[in-house]
Amino acid sequence: MILIITVLFSLFYLFQINKMTFALCESREIPEEKQNKIYATVNVLITILMLSLYVEVFLKV
């Protein structure tokens, strides 16, 4: 049950981070060409963070 909650929280968190990244790109008027690289970098880093959290929770359960 804890693992399911962790995965749902991770998806919600990733969605919120993407919304904040979009707001950053809009407020800084970052060109479209660079936005794709920013999104990719942020999503990879957040995914690594979420995977490490998932592994930590899984090992403790």
Rank of each mutant, 00 (worst) to 15 (best):
I5D: 14
N18P: 08
L3E: 11
L24A: 14
I5Q: 14
L59D: 10
F9N: 06
V61C: 03
V7Y: 09
L59N: 13
Q16N: 11
V44L: 09
I46Q: 12
I2H: 12
I48G: 04
A40T: 10
I38M: 11
K34T: 07
F12H: 02
V57Y: 03
L24P: 01
T41C: 09
M1E: 14
M20E: 10
V7T: 14
K37E: 11
K34P: 00
E29W: 06
M1Y: 14
V55K: 05
T21N: 01
E26S: 04
M50I: 08
E33S: 11
T21M: 02
P31M: 01
I30V: 15
R28K: 13
A23M: 08
A23S: 15
M50H: 10
V7H: 05
L49Y: 03
Y54R: 00
V61Y: 08
K60M: 03
V44E: 00
R28M: 13
E56A: 09
E56Y: 05
M50E: 08
I5G: 09
S52Q: 02
I4Y: 10
S10K: 00
L11F: 15
Y39F: 15
T41Q: 10
Y54W: 11
E56P: 00
M1L: 08
T47G: 07
L53T: 03
T41F: 14
Y13R: 01
T47F: 15
M1H: 13
L51I: 15
T47R: 02
S10P: 02
L24D: 06
V55F: 08
I30L: 12
T6E: 10
L8Q: 13
F22P: 00
K37A: 07
L53S: 05
T41I: 07
E56I: 06
I38H: 09
K37L: 10
K37S: 11
M1Q: 11
L14E: 03
L3P: 01
S27E: 15
R28N: 05
V44Q: 01
F15Y: 08
S10C: 07
M50G: 00
V42Y: 06
A23G: 07
K34F: 10
F15G: 03
Q16I: 03
I4P: 02
L59I: 08
N18E: 12
L8T: 14
L51G: 09
F15P: 01
Y39M: 02
L53I: 09
M20D: 07
M50V: 10
K19Q: 13
N36C: 01
N18W: 06
E56V: 05
I5R: 13
V7M: 09
K37Q: 13
N18C: 12
I4G: 13
T21K: 00
V7S: 14
L14W: 11
L49F: 07
Q35Y: 02
S27V: 02
Q35E: 08
R28P: 00
L11D: 01
M20C: 04
E33L: 07
A40N: 09
L8C: 15
L14C: 04
V44N: 02
K19M: 09
I5H: 06
L53R: 02
V57F: 09
F15H: 03
V7C: 10
N36M: 05
E29P: 00
S52P: 00
K34Y: 12
L8F: 14
I48C: 07
L11N: 01
F22H: 14
T6S: 12
C25L: 13
M1A: 08
P31L: 01
E29Q: 15
L3D: 06
